[in-house]
Design a protein around this nucleic acid. Structure first.
Length: 156
DNA sequence: GCCAACGTTGGC
DNA sequence: GCCAACGTTGGC
């Protein structure tokens, strides 16, 4: 099975590519959307490459690359009443929410902004450029992944 | 099962 | 800060 590629969104105020570089790797906890959960649980495999996208940023865009370093397991923040992502309906016997670990690969020297993604013809169809697309974990065509990574390294 | 109300996301 | 788009909830 060929490796898949992904895009994960994070608000840099909350957790940025710089934070990931400092941490080396992190558990991608707090995801409370079933579609995103399913991608993590069913499809994300160790070694899969990930575009790290800064949402709610100025400007928003792909800031770096990470990779999946550990497959899905239960997300313990769902059981913690003090956690902002606490979900009282989840329980340890039958966990609702899952997380993967992601590991820092590189920061892109040039942010590939949402505008760049939209204006690059060869990236037509990327989910993240679609209006109203809120999914925080999205599959990415491996060709698109390569193009974005290249754009992020090109002097402009 | 429908759908209005609500909360959240995220670009602008 | 605004608000359109979306997912979820809950009454019926």
């Amino acid at each position: 099975m060929a490796k898949k590629c992904w895009l994960i969104k994070s608000e840099p105020n909350a957790y940025s590519i710089d934070d990931l570089r400092k941490d080396g790797k992190t558990s991608w906890d707090g995801v409370r959307n079933y579609q995103a959960r399913n991608f993590m649980r069913d499809d994300m495999k160790v070694g899969d490459l990930v575009l790290f996208y800064h949402s709610n940023a100025k400007p928003p865009g792909v800031a770096g690359v990470a990779k999946v370093s550990r497959e899905a397991r239960p997300d313990p923040t769902a059981w913690d009443p003090k956690d902002p992502h606490y979900d009282p309906r989840s329980n340890k016997a039958d966990p609702t929410w899952m997380m993967v670990d992601v590991e820092f690969v590189e920061e892109l020297p040039q942010l590939v902004s949402l505008d760049d993604l939209k204006s690059t013809k060869s990236l037509d169809g990327m989910l993240v450029t679609r209006r109203g697309q809120r999914l925080s974990i999205q599959p990415v065509d491996p060709e698109h992944f390569k193009i974005v990574r290249k754009l992020g390294k090109k002097k402009r």
